[in-house]
Design a protein around this nucleic acid. Structure first.
Lengths: 339, 339
DNA sequence: GTGAAAGCGCTAACAT
DNA sequence: ATGTTAGCGCTTTCAC
């Protein structure tokens, strides 16, 4: 910077002003400085700037795994939205809980040079003693019910599960079986609760749900169990991957989808429309969730005000070919009451 | 830091030494400092440290999109390996090329506070005038043929494509059609070249390849074309998603897989084993690619020595149920020559 | 083994 | 519109 200042015949302060796009610089001076910057190959030092301003212009994203479809899509949206606001995104992957306890790494997340963080996992896990967020660091949480304490952004899990279950009921199914996600997942529990509530509203006692870990393998294993029973005509899986695994199990056992058994997923991953049969599922707008996260987070950073509360992004049913009326359902006959 | 020093009754210098784990500190003094740190809630300031040392302990990952399976998995592996070495990972998403040209953002990537970068896209795109990497910044490239100039780590695309094609040939297919990736992709071209070469070695003239953009939609569209021809018995798709789309097209047109037409993919994404039929594909070890990237990059950063060259990670064929002998192939009869 | 002094590159505050 | 001064929190160097 000193070089640039010398070359342009100005003070380093003026160089700083030009570098930061301040307006109170004479046009001619600015050009001279710009030219000097170019010839010297000047590039601001972020560390020095951060040290001085106390701001890193960087956001942290904390997550256990990137390997689920939803987390990845959300991360993509977050990175894009952050870049748009000229913030960089620092990934803070967490080893799984057990390993973490041992290693004691990330004891003070605060060492990370970030102005705020997005957390993509259940907030109650933050209670771990060895996982400490610095006081005052703005935080936005996805997939959580911690709205009272944190700023939360999430897709409408409950309504999505309701739509899925209701769709099956509307088709004439007498009951709907559920392949749920793991207990620790807030979304999994929301979907499960909502599925059960929807059945109850229809006067139906929900069967015992099966629990998987979101993987196709779990879906396959659980699907095999369901496929062997002859009273099952409709399955609502808590995500597309388990739905895919379940459909594979159904195919293996020669059960026709949707002729004998209907299947609905959740997520609407890109591949879902090419599964066989194309999967009826609940569409989640991950991009919008990611975008809103950054919007909220940036707002908290800039205003220095916490704004706890929950923002819900709608989900919607996408009907494709994995659902149909149950085999034993009588065709919809014109009731005598209506001509 | 000054607070800690005062509380422990030592100089800030000693606090620094303890903070950095230097050995030349008296055990008693160290304990006193540690205790003081705890009670004050001390946490080192990364910016100040970076300013002083000139090192950020952060790695950048530059990529166009996270939405392809391979990029995602690679990023996951990179983040994990980097965290292991106590480096953080900064995501540097690039808007698509056209937008980039307009915006002129990322003109100087160097402003990012990173010690080195991993680039997950074709290196020749670096030639764009508005995309400048600072001199001397260590770089590792994935998916590239720029081994002479950069350090490159990649899966063995050529051998994978060879195995896929040969597998189909070994099954008795007289020819193999190819759904290729986009021209700009180095891996796509490697797979295409290798497919063609393998056919040529078998004395077969390769048919005209079809080009998709890696998406299931493209696979579906191109699969429809292929499905309508009656001379096609074997398809090698350049990734699993296009293979999935192609299988959907085949199902829609009532063509049996693998009875009438065999399909092979590339990537071995987690879902592939649950596609219907379970997909025969080429397994890529993304974790190993990511791990090696970081290993190489860290080595370059620490030694300050560039080490151009290409490291290849093996790929392997995973046979599942989407491939079989062609319908018209005569059963393998015992040749008169062998008893 | 420990401390004092200096300065990394930048910008906020004030002065001109 | 531009310059001067000071200092952010740390580590390197050198002295003791």
């Amino acid at each position: 910077m000193a070089d640039v200042a010398a070359l342009a015949g100005v003070s380093s302060q003026t160089v700083s002003r030009v570098s930061n796009g301040r307006t109170n610089v004479d046009a001619a001076t600015r050009d001279r400085v710009l030219e000097a910057m170019r010839s010297v190959g000047y590039q601001p030092n972020r560390a020095a700037r951060a040290l001085r301003t106390g701001r890193f212009r960087s956001l942290g994203v904390i997550t256990f795994t990137l390997s689920t479809f939803g987390n990845m899509r959300t991360l993509d949206a977050i990175a894009t939205a952050a870049a748009h606001a000229d913030y960089s995104v620092t990934l803070i992957p967490l080893p799984d809980p057990t390993v973490r306890t041992v290693s004691g790494a990330y004891q003070r997340l605060s060492e990370q040079a970030v102005d705020g963080v997005v957390i993509i996992f259940e907030a109650h896990l933050l209670d771990h003693a060895d996982f400490v967020l610095p006081d005052g660091l703005p935080v936005v949480v996805i997939d959580s019910n911690a709205g009272a304490q944190f700023t939360v952004v999430d897709a409408d899990q409950a309504d999505g599960a309701r739509q899925a279950t209701q769709h099956l009921l509307d088709l004439g199914h007498r009951n709907v079986w559920h392949i749920a996600g793991p207990d620790e997942s807030f979304s999994a529990m929301r979907r499960l609760d909502s599925w059960r509530a929807t059945l109850r509203e229809a006067g139906i006692e929900a069967p015992e749900p099966l629990h998987g870990d979101w993987s196709t393998e779990a879906g396959h294993r659980l699907g095999l169990e369901l496929a062997r029973r002859d009273d099952v005509t409709a399955i609502f899986a808590a995500n597309d991957q388990m739905a895919l695994g379940a459909m594979r199990a159904l195919h293996e056992l020669g059960r026709d989808v949707p002729g004998e058994i209907s299947v609905v997923g959740f997520d609407d991953m890109e591949e879902a429309s090419s599964f066989w049969p194309p999967l009826t599922t609940i569409h989640q707008d991950f991009s919008e969730v990611g975008r809103l996260c950054i919007e909220k987070l940036l707002h908290e950073i800039e205003t220095k005000q916490r704004a706890p509360g929950t923002t819900i992004v709608p989900t919607r049913l996408v009907v494709r070919s994995s659902t149909a009326a149950p085999p034993q359902a009588a065709p919809t006959t014109t009731s005598p009451a209506t001509p």
